[in-house]
Design a binder for these strands. Structure first.
Lengths: 338, 338
DNA sequence: TCGCCTGATGTAATCGTTTACATGGCTAGC
DNA sequence: GCTAGCCATGTAAACGATTACATCAGGCGA
């Protein structure tokens, strides 16, 4: 590995000049610059990142933590993050926290040790040990929240308008003639679950049929989706439609419907949330809310880089567009409402 | 951030002694060690990784590249990798290559610049620029291949026995009474596709019905799965079963079957490959080959750490156990063979 | 009693950058 | 023709660890 010393020697200049050519080319005369650049090229010189980091405190890495990387929604967001980060010259450090506070803390420590320039966390929990940092630095803390959004956290974020998305889903069902609707939420500790739930209730209130809502709490998983959907389907006043707060939950719901010998959408309509890559290939293809995963990934990186470049001192909450994707899992209910 | 100097001052020793307490405690007397440890604790000292890296050439990071992180099979393997790596004190740098040689090269350069101690690549392509490194260092090159396996590559790997797995799938179908079987492979550039194909042909040869095989080349994706399955289903001598080299391909196949008004498994049985987390929740639940994704992730990290610790000078190919998971997408064909 | 060995610790060079400050040559203004 | 100021460049001190080598004290054998 050629060092900056080698380049300096080859070009017949000092290391300071080489460094300047690389980071502030206009502070060096054209002829010298030419010689240095030639030396760099001929030696295949590339700066040692560890030395650079030691000196500048910049690692050129961003840490991304996620509750479960094998969840397709998150992995799609991560993909966008990786793309934006590598495009901006940053490497991505991946942390799978498995919803465990201990692992979150472990990665938080990496940030505190400055082993990464910033942290993007997907999911709703700001790792505990980071709270003082946010309190102290405010919007200058290099921490950004993706997908979720809690104003109280004090960090910037990128996400969709979850309440509006939920309203869109409900309106779609109401529009088809459903009134008795089952809702399987995510964990209520998560603000996006609460936002969606607010949307659900708002939509029902507008139509004055809040009491026709059957709301149960899930956790975004397939298994819980299946179980909770089962409970709803077994009620005497069975809902004619289910709105699930994730596509995985919806997959579980579809499974529960089939197991009971019912069919979707004839007996029960199902709406999911996320539009993961398989949503269109389920049976029936799933009506769902599309989240712009790649765009969320890009945006969250942009927000972080903005903080890192010392930009705005304000926390920003970027709302990205969602859309309702209507497929075959929703239809008008048969019977009275048809 | 406290530095080693601060600790040394607080404990009244030299930095050398502090360093020794941290990395070779038995070279320091018990009393001194005690004082140093107390100082470390009271200052909350934690070594600066950049400085350490600069001096030792060890980054404590491993680079993991993957053709598509949003592919659930890969993301499950990554999860295992992350778990094993963080357990061993390594951080994971994630590279999504998107099957693009340019991105592979970009990440290969990171390894060459020693920004990571080693590389784990999932997928079949050793990034081009790394070939010289492998040629030169042989088994000491800190590069390991996950999921795939090509002996010619010269690097260690962890994977299942793909030929045996394919044989198991075929035997399952033959055992049910199928003889006309359609096969949708992955890209043939990939050794695992070729291995699986060999298994398919071997199984057919044993039963002397190679000519009943209908083999088409896919690429593991849903869309291609749907298209290729469509082609097979539209043949005059329609296969009674399809063996798909990935679960996503199988999802596409199920879709194609439904679109033609056929049903699975009554008209056509389907076998997938991977057992991704949704496989059991498709309609019908998918019979498939389970790959031990977490275990592959762990193993591949173990292999890499072995190289990094200067262990064995031999490339090793670790075969992990697969299993056939029989669900509802396969049944005996109706008609003559029933 | 003396010298040697051993074990504990310190000194200081080193890893490869960046950057504050010093230097020296030139130009421009008077 | 002289000086102030600027521009291009060099010098050298950090950044925070590790480690080869030096030093020193004490114990032990002859």
């Amino acid at each position: 590995m050629a060092t900056i010393q080698d380049v300096a020697r080859t070009a017949g200049v000092s290391t300071a000049t080489v460094s300047r050519v690389l980071s502030a080319p206009d502070r060096v005369s054209a002829t010298t610059r030419g010689r240095v650049e030639a030396a760099v090229a001929s030696l295949g010189y590339t700066p040692n990142l560890a030395a650079k980091t030691l000196r500048t405190l910049r690692t050129h890495k961003i840490l991304v933590t996620v509750p479960d990387i094998s969840n397709p929604f998150f992995s799609q967001v991560i993909r966008g993050v990786e793309e934006a980060a590598s495009g901006a010259g940053y490497a991505v450090l991946l942390g799978d926290t498995r919803h465990e506070a201990a692992r979150e803390a472990q990665y938080a420590a990496m940030l505190q040790r400055r082993e990464a320039d910033g942290l993007i966390f997907l999911g709703h929990r700001l790792p505990e040990p980071l709270a003082p940092m946010v309190a102290e630095m405010g919007a200058r803390a290099p921490i950004v929240n993706g997908c979720e959004y809690s104003p109280g956290l004090g960090v910037s974020s990128a996400h969709i308008d979850n309440a509006a998305a939920a309203i869109a889903a409900m309106e779609h069902l109401y529009g088809l003639g459903h009134s008795r609707i089952g809702v399987i939420t995510g964990p209520l500790a998560s603000p996006i679950s609460r936002d969606r739930l607010n949307g659900v209730e708002l939509a029902a209130t507008r139509r004055d049929i809040v009491r026709d809502l059957a709301i149960v709490t899930g956790d975004f998983s397939i298994e819980t989706g299946a179980r909770k959907a089962g409970e709803l389907l077994d009620r005497p006043d069975r809902p004619t439609a289910l709105f699930c707060f994730s596509d995985e939950t919806a997959m579980g719901a579809l499974d529960a419907i089939r197991r009971r010998g019912l069919s979707c959408p004839e007996d029960v309509s199902v709406v999911g949330f996320d539009d993961i890559r398989f949503a269109g290939y389920l049976d029936p293809p799933l009506t769902t809310i599309r989240q712009p995963t790649a765009q969320i990934g890009h945006e969250v990186v942009r927000l972080l880089l903005e903080v890192l470049s010392g930009g705005s001192a304000l926390t920003r909450h970027v709302t990205l567009p969602h859309s309702l994707v209507v497929r075959a899992s929703t239809a008008s209910p048969r019977g009275p409402a048809t």
